[in-house]
Amino acid sequence: MSIWEYANPKKFMQATAKVLPWVAGLAVVLLGAGLIWGFFFTPDDYKQGSTVKIIYLHVPSAMMGVSAWFTMLAGSLIWLIRRHHVSALVAKAAAPVGLTFVVIGLVTGAIWGQPMWGTWWAWDPRLTSFLILGLFYLGYVALWAAIEDPDTAADLTSVLCIVGSVFAFLSRYAVNFWNQGLHQGASVSMVGGDRVSNVYGLPLGVSVLGFALLFLTLVMLRTRTEIRARRVKALLARERVA
């Protein structure tokens, strides 16, 4: 049986109905374990104190914020090439989730940055390109909302997603270039996953997995809702004609 069969709305509904409770349950378990482990059973950092523990929210949110965009890109490409409605709806469903993760990433970053760098916001290349990614999300969500015909909306948002990906990627490099040019050398470094010791790294890994499953749960849930909404729309249109 080919994987494309799940692109059929009916098959997708059946399959996700079976999988969803398990994924959601596992997400709760992993999130609970990762966050409780991280918050209460890891030592404070010798420099950052207990502030460092926001890492368990900040890093996974930021990662999901980027992953969601890649999900949208994949969904858009599949829609344009193979015209599977479900893939367009997955892209649509992933966008607000991704945007929310981007916002959480930015807010937790600001809360973390305030005591560490003494400022809520700095025009650090990484922060800036993340903010720009948020703007691309806003445009994508707004375009979906503005167009009435669902297939036209799917086409236009898919084209926007592909072009937007190229420009988001370009912006990232442009921003790196820009900050370097603005004040050489002086840059605020963030705690990247590679520099974290195992004491923090293991619970962080568990949280990331938990966030990934949470993302999967939300996208599946939203896609199911979208499919039902399309079904309602089809029935209403039919009623008008009859």
């Binding site: 720009i132 703007l135 937007g164």
Partner: peptide, 16 residues
């Protein structure tokens, strides 16, 4: 909506 879609894409040109 047009400006919301277009302005983020102007970032690279603006920076360079």
């Amino acid at each position: 909506l047009l400006s919301l879609l277009v302005l983020p894409m102007y970032v690279p040109s603006l920076i360079f």
